[in-house]
Every structure is written in C-alpha cells, then in structure tokens.
Design a binder for these strands. Structure first.
Lengths: 332, 332
DNA sequence: GCCGATTTTGGCAGCGCTGCCAATCTTTCT
DNA sequence: AGAAAGATTGGCAGCGCTGCCAAAATCGGC
C-alpha cells in the first residue's frame, strides 16, 4: 500500500470559508483572470487560516498541461550529470517547473523502462543524455508528443532538441593539441566505452586524428568499471607496465586523468617532461592541483540551463552547440 | 502557457478496443484484483496496439495515494547530496516510486518555498538535509501529514524520521584522533558555516574537544563561499600566512582538505611531518592521492538507501544512526 | 441439472482542480 | 437616467483513473 494522505484542505473548502466561488479562489491563487482587491484579500486570508496547499496533481490533470520535466540520466555520481541537473534545476525552479529524475546506470534497457515510467507522469519534457537510445525508447518518445531534449552530444540526429557540443570535435582537438605540442608516442586510458558512448566518440575521433597524422595511438588500456580517480591511476600503471616509451596519455576524462597524475606523482614520473597528461571535462579540481590539468572544459551547467530555457520558452526543435574550451594546463 | 499534450490514448479507449470494461483494464495493468488469463491477453494486446501509456497523474489523483518522494537538498554540486540522492533513487526506482527534487542553495527561506512547492505534489515523503529549518517549514511539514525524513544529521530532534550520523561525534572523534597522534597546535580551515550547519556542528564539537584537552584551537580561517578544492587551498595559504607554527589542520571537508594537500605539495611542505591534514567525508579521491587522506568516511549512499527503504516500508518514526568510520590515512 | 460459492466483470461516482460560459455588478458615456 | 461596455463572479462539466458494489459468469458437488 502506498502512503495515504490525511484529509487535507481543498479548494472548495477555501472557497466556502472565503464566501466566494471555487473558480474565484483558483483565479486568485494563480493570479490569472480578473478579481477585485478585496476578494483577493478574503481568499488569501482563508488560505492562510486553513493552511491550504494547492493540489498540483489535480491541477495538472484538470488543465492537461504539465510543469514537470523528467530527467533520465546515466549516473548521479558522475559530476557531469549532477552539474547538468543543477543548471537545469535552477532555471526550472525559477519558472515554477518541477524536475523529476531517474538514473539508468548507463543501461539502455533500463533507460527505456525509466523513460516509459517518466512518460506516465505526462511531463512537459524528457531530458536524456546523448543520442544512443533503444529503438523502443525513441519510438515511445516520438509518440509521446512531449518535448525531448538530448544532452551533451551533438554527433547524431536529434529527436527534437539537442544541447551540448561535439564529442568528436573534442577528441579531435585533444589529439591536435597533443600533436601540436610535439608528442608522438601517445597512449590512452579509459573506462567502459560501450556504456559511455560519448567517451567512445571522443576516443575514436582522437585516434582518427592521430592516424591522419601518421602517428597512430601506441597503446591503450580500457578498464571495465566506471570512470574514477582510482581507475585512472590503475589504468596508467597498467599501461606503463608494457608501453614503456610513451610521451603522452589521453584519458577518457578528468577523473581518470587525475588518477594518472597522482600515479606519476607517487612514482616520481615528471610531468610533462617524462609524460604528458590530458583529460576531459575541465573539473575545478583539475585547476587546484600543483600543475593545472590540461584538458577540455565542457559547459555542463550551461547545458542544463540552456536546455531548461528552451523547454520553458517552448522553443522549436533545434540543436544548440555550446562548444567547449581547450585548457592549456601544465600537464601537457 | 505550459506545454499541452497532443491527444493521448486513454484507459477508456483501451477498454473499448479490448472489448472489456475500464476497471478490468485498470486491474490487469496494475496486476491487482482478479481477472482471467484471456482477458489479460486481450487487454495487453490492445495496450500494445494502441501504444497506451497510463496516466499517473490521473491515477494518483483518483487513488489519493502517492508514489512520489520529494527531495529538498542544499546543493547538487556537493557530491554528498548527489550520493544520497543516488542511493535513495535506486531504492525508490526498484519500488516504483518516483524521485522529485529541488535545490535550496543552503538558503532556509528558499527551503521553505521549495518545501511548499513540493507538498503541492502530495508526495509520500519529503526528504531534507538536517534539522535546521525555518519555523514555517517545520509547521508546514508537520501539518502536511506526509512522511518527513531528515538526512545526514542526528544532533537534534527529528520531525519524523532521521537517517544519518552525529556530526558532533564526528568533530569530536576527529579532534581526539589528532590529539592522540600528538598534535597540539591545531588550526581549522572551513567554508561558510552559517549555511552548512552540519559543518558548523563538527567544528564546534571539534573545538570543545580541544578545549577539554587544554590545547585550544590555535587559528582558523573561514572562507565565505561554498566548499571547494580551490577554497581549501586558498584557506590554508591564508591560515599559514599568520599562524606559522601549526602542526595540524582540520578541514571542513575533504574537498577543502584536498586543496590544503595540494597547497602543501606545491609549497614543498611535507605531510604529515611538517603539517598534518585531516578532512571529512571519505571521498574516493582522497584514497587515490599519493598519501591517502586521513578523514572520516560517511555513509552517504547508505543514508539515501536506508531513508528510501524506511519510506517504502512505511516504517514508524525513528532515528537511524548509520555511524561513520575514521580513516587513518597518511596525512595525519 | 440445480444450487450455493467463488471468480470475473462492468458501471459509475468521485479524486481536486481548471476552463468555459453565462450571470451579475460597476463604470462610463450620452 | 438609461444603455453599452467592462470588470467580476459562480456554476458545472470534465481531466483520466481508481474504488466500491452489484451483476454476471464459472465452478463444484450431489
């Protein structure tokens, strides 16, 4: 059994107490339509006296319009999604929208199930990470008629709105930067790419760029789990165990790169002279370590904000490229 | 204007298509009550054919029971709350509950407004951080009749359910640990304590413990902004500028402590011989740095999980102490 | 093949609010 | 003062679903 509410004050009771009609109370409370100043006062007094809290469930049903925005994100422990959620949440709050979320754990099947559960709330919009959805998910979203926002990726075809940046471009520019600095024997340390397809896109375009330069990737180490500092450390340790003459390593993101950085610190490998390190995301912590991390800063909070704004303002379908910024730190 | 849905399939249409009554469809879909196997098949076929997605708004209204759980948290960029949210979200998902959230930015007035907005959704429970709420918030929550869970703090009186651990005990044990290691000239670097009252509790009981030992806190530096690695670095730099003979520094949390650690690394201050560092939270990254951070590990994910379980299982009012673990790293 | 017990069903009144429309009250203008 | 134009109101039918209850179908045993 679900939780059953104790009897609460209803709009009808407020109307009764204020000696006005229900619709009048509704108008006053939503500040919509016209009513006199004294009516307003009487209604507000009754609301105050009875401690009335409007029932949004009923309101949403009656108006068949929704101010819910559903987020279906891969993970919350990954700061990236927390940032996006935070950025979007702030904008939605200002506009009296409500954010609902669920976490897929990078599992497409789970994404489909959760998206379906979300649609049952008849949200104004559903926000998801990236373009890689099951066919069922895509079909369901299209049929739902609600707005769909795909976040943090622009390499693909959007269902409706897309906000983010190109991961392929990020991979490409990372490679170009390292090549420009003269590094030639480059390795890669990453986490599970089947699940994090955006990291996969970065990696493949990174490799293509190296190939085009005639200096293909020398070695890579891919760990099964999610990205983490510890996995980054471990990954670099393993990579260096057999690829002994690397001059630079590209990491799937800053968490991993920090792990690599710490490994070097602990092993006395000097950065960047012996080994250069390059990350992805531009986390704040990367700027606070003794040698600021060379990385690409992504507009995570802005992605959430813009996405929310587009929904709130009922913008037409579009893809918004927020770009990213390459940060020349001290590690590469 | 809010988003208006395109006409969707309703339960009545499914009933019509399947040639059964509405209540029968409802029973089959919720797997509740009795119905024959062939009826089930016919209903499911119609559902499939029409692409029916139940409307939870209507269902919730009709049943006056809710499977929404509202989170009112101070911040999402602080990993602590993201962890709690993640832990709770997983459990709620399994039980077909839905998480809704909003972010107060550590502002009690905003918390009150957001709590009110949340109650309008008639959630089964509201989860908040700690005990420090405005009187209005407390009154509203009590009157709502919905379950209330206060998280991450046990030093105070719970409105209904509390899940977490004692921040005062954490502060005390941190002090005792440092004293036990022989440190006597101890300083503190923290972030805005008026807003983060849990950090405030740790700090005050930390100081009390030092006082009781006859070796009061030597110096402290409190930064205005939120906790961050950069603020930790800056805070320690400032502290050491005038408190030159400290032998240990207690930080308001691991983010700050990491900043301090990096400052020492960059300045060639050897840890812990010249200066010991102690944090709070037990973030993973603290274990991946060359010298594992000495800190207190808090059960953040478990806090969320347990809180969600108590709500799902309709547990009676109670305070659950999940404790914490002091980690003897290499920095103190 | 009939009767009571049990399982399946359908009908329909709400859940609490909003949207629409008609009714009432004020103003304003001639 | 009388009429037209506006400004305020209240009534009430839903929004789509669930809960309750009675009706219909099925079952079992003699």
């Amino acid at each position: 059994m679900e939780f059953k509410h104790q009897p609460t004050v209803t709009l009808a009771e407020v109307a009764e107490a204020a000696g006005v009609g229900e619709s009048t109370v509704s108008r006053v409370l939503r500040n919509h339509g016209s009513f006199s100043g004294k009516t307003r006062e009487r209604v507000m007094a009754a609301v105050e006296r009875l401690g009335y809290v409007p029932n949004r469930i009923a309101g949403t049903l009656a108006s068949t319009t929704s101010r819910l925005v559903a987020f279906v994100i891969p993970s919350l422990s990954n700061i990236v999604f927390a940032d996006v959620l935070g950025g979007a949440g702030a904008v939605l709050e200002e506009n009296r929208y409500q954010a609902v979320f669920s976490v897929t754990d990078y599992d497409p099947a789970k994404e489909e199930a959760l998206a379906a559960a979300m649609l049952a709330w008849r949200p104004a919009a559903v926000m998801l990470a990236g373009y890689e959805h099951t066919e069922g998910t895509a079909k369901m979203l299209r049929a739902s008629g609600c707005r769909v926002v795909e976040l943090l990726d622009l390499d693909g075809d959007a269902l409706d709105i897309a906000v983010g940046f190109s991961n392929r471009a990020a991979g490409r520019e990372s490679a170009a930067f390292l090549l420009g600095r003269g590094y030639r024997r480059i390795g890669y340390v990453g986490h599970d790419l089947n699940r994090d397809t955006r990291a996969g896109k970065r990696f493949s375009s990174f490799c293509e760029t190296l190939d085009a330069n005639g200096t293909p990737l020398v070695a890579h180490e891919i760990l099964a789990g999610p990205s983490s500092v510890e996995n980054g450390r471990l990954g670099l340790e393993r990579l260096l165990a057999w690829a002994t003459d690397l001059d630079a390593v590209y990491f799937s993101n800053d968490d991993m790169a920090l792990g690599g950085y710490f490994h070097c610190l602990a092993q006395g490998i000097s950065i960047p002279s012996q080994l250069a390190i390059f990350g992805y995301n531009g986390l704040d912590i990367g700027r606070a370590i003794p040698q600021p991390l060379s990385t690409i800063r992504t507009p995570r909070v802005a992605t959430g904000e813009i996405a929310a704004q587009l929904i709130v303002s009922k913008a037409p379908p579009q893809a918004v490229d927020l770009g990213f910024e390459l940060i020349e730190g001290a590690t590469a």
